[in-house]
Amino acid sequence: MQAFEYAKPATLKEAFGLLGAQWGEADLLAGGTDLLSLMKDYIHKPKRVVSLTGVKELKGIKSSSDGLHIGAMVTLEELLGNAQVRKEYLSLVQAARGVTSPQIRAMGTVGGDLCQRPRCWYFRNGFGLLAREGDGKELVPNGENRYHAILGNSGPAKFVSASSLGPALIALGAKLTIASGSGNRNVDADKFFLTPNDPASREVDLKPNEILTEIVVPPAAGTKNATYEVRQKEALDWPLATASVALKTSGSTVSSAKVVLGHVAPTPWNSAEAAQALVGKPLNESTAKAAAEAALAGATPLSQNRYKIQLAKVAVKRALLAAAGKA
């Protein structure tokens, strides 16, 4: 790990004054489980690390008429311990529980989950977010791509978004508050994740001098929601595919649906096709299966990851049935 300056501001205002104008100048430290690994591998070499652990404004979960306000520094364990989250947002609970290590849940934060860097092993070994050799040759298409994207991979980005909570927050229609010294801006969770087309771009909508401060999840108001995660091992493993769903029903038919897949594309994958396959129909095994087929109909697997299509279909089907209380 390269040596760095360290600062632990007590307020957001203090924190803004410590950030740089360019990436690489300062990195924000939340739980540290990802940042420290990135620094040990010299993928991130910040000159300054700004710890957010002392900023009280980023802590706590508050309920308000416009929904649940979750501070970016709330740990996954604190999220799981919140009574309202447990009662109304099953999909968030299941997504956070998918992070199977109690240590990671105790250290890792909601903001950190959304801002963590992709796990692509080419990226983690210094070949950049777009995984290229020095001569520009793409490494993923003919390389070790069993964990890479099966959707949204027609451009140069082939990694998968690492966020566990992102798909659930998008399905629930959450908004993120992003702050800087010049004020706040709100971004739909769906618009926060980006697919970079050049090596200098990032995979989330954040500038070097900005801080993700809060996640606002609209009131559940009877929205049925669930997350299903497929991974190789029972414990301590990254997902191979996940699906988070949120449904509104009118009588026995689905009146609106959001189906968001995780770990299958460079961003969480919001499938309009799956939603369309459900609206106006009753939710049962056969419509859930049809929605899963629709979600993966456009999949473009790489040389080693065709198997993820079936896993993703299973995740969609089981998440839908779980949300409807039929699993």
């Binding site: 040596a3 760095f4 300056e5 360290y6 600062a7 632990k8 501001p9 007590a10 205002k13 203090e14 924190a15 803004f16 004054g17 410590l18 740089g20 100048e25 300062a26 000159k47 300054r48």
Partner: peptide
């Protein structure tokens, strides 16, 4: 290594 923290920032920079 980086520009000094702005005047309003009261946080102390330590290290490297």
């Amino acid at each position: 290594l980086l520009a000094e923290p702005q005047a309003e920032s009261g946080a102390r920079v330590m290290g490297p």
